[in-house]
Amino acid sequence: MSNGLIQGLAAYFLWPGLLAGALLGWLYLWLSRALIARMQRRFGPPFYQPFFDFVKLLGKRSMVPAGTAPLLYYGLPLAAVISITLALAVMPLPGGLNASFTGDLILVLYLMEMPAFCDILAGFASRSIYGQVGSSREAALILGYSLPFIAAVSALAIQADSFRMVDVLALPFGPVHVLAAAAFILAVPARLKSNPFSIPNAEQEIVAGPHVEYNGPALALFELAHGLEFVAVGALFSVLFIPRLPSAGLNLVLYLAAGLLLVLITSVLAAATARLQIHRAFRFYWTWGALAALGCVVLAALL
């Protein structure tokens, strides 16, 4: 085997891909649950809880709902995990693969969208009415939060005049970064489906949204994909907005700090707010999200 292949596999399966991503994702999921519990004056779960949840779900017997193809039922969560891990492996993180190519930013955006698309398809494929309601809500929400999210990434790409992540990383820190980071953070709670925007998976309201018919190992994979999504959003944030330092150790600390910052923001927001209706969330993103999007893109084009 060539050296490049080994490095690629290591980046995919170990750091910053599957293994490190899963561990970090479980840490972030626990931290989010524990922070919300503390803000509600509870103690919350012990820190190994997401890991135990995952293993327990893996060990449950699985039931495929009648009328759903097993290939689709197991394939969708698997596709979600595979693509979000690939997004993590491609990103130029400290200690990761340094194989940047033209357009890798577009690839990462596409791969990070995959878990949401798999969710939507899973909801429709499960043939449950609650799953279908959840899926249509998620599809509408994507249209909302994609506006500030894609605009934040595009603004930096316009400034760097390139869709290579290495070029975006090399940008000197400027006012565009501040505005684009604001637009990015605006989109994060909806991306992670946490509280004011927990509209697609609205537990108790529409049972469990797109995952209502999912159980056992397939549900475990969806939970894993959710944890990895947390990590990938934090990783993209650190790639886009956090200036690189000469020391690799410090860069690593900054990478973790970016993830923890996003966990803190989403948890505080989730504990402080109630769920919005889908049209209100949509209106929020198409007014404030659109303003932030327009602001950062125009600023990037002018500067």
């Binding site: 919350g44 949840d53 469990a208 209502v212 999912y214």
Partner: peptide
């Protein structure tokens, strides 16, 4: 605080 022993209330019996 049932969550301390890891218990969660689920909306779907399949979970």
């Amino acid at each position: 605080d049932m969550e301390q022993i890891g218990a969660l209330r689920q909306g779907s019996p399949k979970h």
